[in-house]
């Protein structure tokens, strides 16, 4: 493999993985931007969906990607229930309580998964898992390509909904000015519920994708919470639109560090920290207001 091909491969791998990051992070960003709620248990919904994907495929032979609409609906409802039962009581209780509560839920779900499914890593092999397409000596994993396409479709769909529909306009209105939105008759409760539903729904789709190209284990979700946070911080907390390029930066820099640094795959797990710290310091003047 030539140096150019290596570079191209690293770039492509980074781009292919960033779709999952964008999906996971856009849910976090939506919940934060609209509901003003930082959900540290976000990744755990991803983890649960990954187990569901593995269960669906290994028990019924259902392809996780084809099941996306069903799973999205299911997790949308779960997100709505989550909002009604756990999120709503602490929304006005301050940041400390929100953080501790969602962190508690995260620990609870991780250990529930550990008790129910054990600590072993579970994988499935869908027929196209190892299939690749090659261009100019650069390999595109078919599964990863499909996943990236699905992510793009979903994100474009989300932006269209936010921009063009009545619901989307209500969501943006509540996000920008909750009191103003209430004054013109927008039911902010319903908007919060929908936003959290979409956030959890997107997490579940990302989880389905994980089950295909990665694996399921109890701790897999928390990693995505951290990486999602890095993306969200870099995009600007609550900024749904900035998520795409921030995910690309995370995915590509992880990939390059993995390829070019000695023992790089271990170090690539630390890049999100630099993004978080860099993002926070650069945006320092802006964030101190929130």
């Amino acid at each position: 493999m030539s140096a150019g091909q290596l570079f191209g491969q690293a770039l492509i791998n980074g781009i292919l993985i960033s779709g999952i990051y964008a999906l996971a992070a856009s849910g976090l960003a939506l919940a934060f931007g609209v509901v003003k709620f930082l959900n540290l248990a976000h990744g755990e919904f991803l983890m649960l969906a990954a187990y569901l994907g593995i269960f669906l495929f290994s028990s019924y032979g259902l392809d996780p990607l084809l099941m996306t609409p069903v799973v999205f609906t299911l997790f949308f409802i779960l997100g709505a229930v989550y909002y009604k039962t756990l999120v709503k009581p602490v929304l006005k209780a301050g940041e400390l309580n929100q953080l501790l509560l969602t962190f508690g839920i995260s620990i609870f779900l991780q250990n529930l998964a550990l008790i129910l499914f054990g600590g072993t890593i579970r994988t499935i092999s869908v027929p196209y898992r190892t299939h690749t397409i090659s261009f100019w000596g650069i390999n595109f994993g078919t599964a990863r390509l499909l996943i990236l396409l699905l992510s793009i479709v979903l994100l474009v769909g989300l932006y269209q909904v936010l921009q063009r529909t009545r619901v989307g306009r209500s969501i943006r209105a509540v996000s920008q000015e909750p009191e103003g939105a209430a004054l013109v008759g927008i039911d902010s409760e319903a908007v919060y519920l929908i936003a959290l539903g979409i956030a959890v729904g997107f997490a579940s789709v990302a989880g389905m994708m994980l089950s295909i190209i990665f694996h399921a284990e109890p701790m897999v979700g928390f990693n995505f919470t951290l990486k999602g946070l890095a993306v969200v911080v870099m995009a600007g907390l609550g900024n749904v639109y900035g998520v795409i390029w921030a995910s690309l930066i995370l995915g590509i820099s992880e990939s390059f560090i993995g390829v070019y640094l000695p023992n790089g795959t271990g170090w690539s797990g630390a890049i999100f920290f630099l993004m978080i710290l860099g993002g926070l310091i650069i945006r320092h003047s802006r964030v101190s207001e929130v």
Binding site: A93, N97, F108, L109, N111, L112, L114, I115, G119
Partner: peptide, 18 residues
């Protein structure tokens, strides 16, 4: 529960806050 005994910490954190 040798594995997953940490579940109690999650439960107590949630219940404690609520």
């Amino acid at each position: 529960i040798p594995y997953g005994y940490m579940i109690i910490y999650g439960l107590i954190l949630v219940a404690g806050i609520l």
